[in-house]
């Protein structure tokens, strides 16, 4: 590989391009601050429902997933070809995976775990499409700024008060974004308004998993369905996992208190599963976005290795979310009374 002259030429050319861009467009990471927002920015509103880039991307994910599902299973044949083959391979791989984790109960959990996997992996990869997160426009909060039209900044002529549309849309390829942002920033400073705080870069597409609501929704479903399956399998006895007063009521104070304490810990850890699920996915994807953005602003070549890393992370996060869900569901359906009488008898 190192002896390949073409590779060296490509690397040197890329570095040269990076240097040239750096010289002619000396941008700072300052601009990143405007484009990174934990809470997604609102693009527009449908009725009273605020539509964000992540919501838009989620709709795209929905269309892609359902479209793929529809095309691949339109004509099911015994000897599969094309899309059907692809879909069957994916399903078969997932069956193998979840069977190895959830055991014989896999078929019961399959819909949930497989949907989580597909949804998360589609969401993550859509966020990695070049342009997602980097093509959008500048938006200013309307409360403090008066020179806005339809929620978008106007780099307007002071005399005519007319908005120039070319100033509104910003391609977030670095130089153009910086130019526009600095222009805007300067104009705000001149007017005595602290622009940075209110200005934000709003991409059109953004990975839905970098919006905390999506991981949170999945985590809620995952944990809730775990309780449901646990109850289906063990009935009301399932709840002795968290509220085990059995031995305490029998008069065994010492062990009874231990049981109650263990149940309490179980309950807290169960609730915190929601948090850990949410922040594991959200944190990874959001951090990945920020890293890619900062690297892009630092030097033209830098995002490449990180892009490869994010590609890997996107898969791993989907995998982990689905696998953990399957594992928790298995534990919930397999546990014997959580420190109750059966557990005691076994020791």
């Amino acid at each position: 590989m190192l002896k390949n002259p073409k590779l060296w030429i490509a690397i040197i050319a890329l570095i040269a391009v990076g240097v040239v861009i750096k010289i002619f467009f000396p941008f700072t990471t300052e601009a990143v601050r405007a484009s990174v927002a934990v809470a997604p920015e609102v693009i527009f509103e449908i009725g009273s429902f605020p539509v964000t880039p992540t919501i838009l991307t989620m709709v795209l994910v929905f269309i892609l997933l359902v479209g793929f599902a529809f095309i691949s299973t339109r004509k099911m044949e015994m000897v599969p070809g094309g899309m059907q083959n692809l879909m069957e391979t994916i399903i078969e791989q997932m069956v193998g995976l979840f069977e190895s984790i959830a055991g014989p109960m896999w078929a019961k959990f399959f819909s949930i775990t497989a949907t989580i996997f597909l949804l998360v992996i589609f969401s993550n990869y859509l966020g990695l499409i070049p342009g997602a997160g980097s093509i959008g426009f500048i938006k200013v909060s309307s409360e403090t700024h008066t020179d806005i039209k339809d929620g978008q900044v106007c780099f307007q002529d002071q005399e005519t008060h007319e908005c120039e549309p070319s100033g509104i849309f910003v391609l977030a390829d670095a130089p153009a974004f910086i130019d526009t942002y600095e222009l805007y920033y300067k104009s705000q400073i001149e007017k005595g308004i602290e622009a940075e705080q209110h200005a934000a870069f709003v991409p059109i597409l953004r990975a839905p998993s970098s919006d905390i609501n999506m991981p949170l929704a999945l985590a809620l479903v995952s944990v809730f369905m775990t309780q449901v399956y646990g109850m289906q399998k063990q009935g009301l006895k399932y709840w002795t996992r968290f509220f085990s007063f059995g031995r305490l009521l029998k008069g065994d104070i010492a062990f009874g208190l231990i049981d109650v304490f263990v149940g309490l810990v179980e309950l807290i850890s169960e609730i915190f599963k929601i948090v850990s699920f949410t922040f594991r996915l959200f944190g990874n994807i959001f951090a990945g976005e920020v890293i890619l953005l900062i690297m892009a602003f630092l030097f033209a070549l830098l995002p490449l290795p990180f892009y490869g890393l994010e590609f890997f992370v996107a898969f791993i996060q989907a995998f982990v979310f689905a696998v953990l869900t399957a594992a928790f569901m298995r534990i919930a359906t397999a546990e014997h009374g959580g420190g109750g009488h059966e557990g005691e008898a076994q020791h």
Binding site: V38, P50, M58, S111, L118, P208, N213, L216
Partner: peptide
């Protein structure tokens, strides 16, 4: 600050359930 919002959360939940049912 984290962006947790009931309407978005509901939208994501409905989206998930819809995709689940369709798939």
């Amino acid at each position: 600050k984290l962006g947790v919002n009931v309407s978005w959360l509901l939208a994501q939940l409905i989206n998930f359930i819809l995709i689940l049912v369709i798939l």
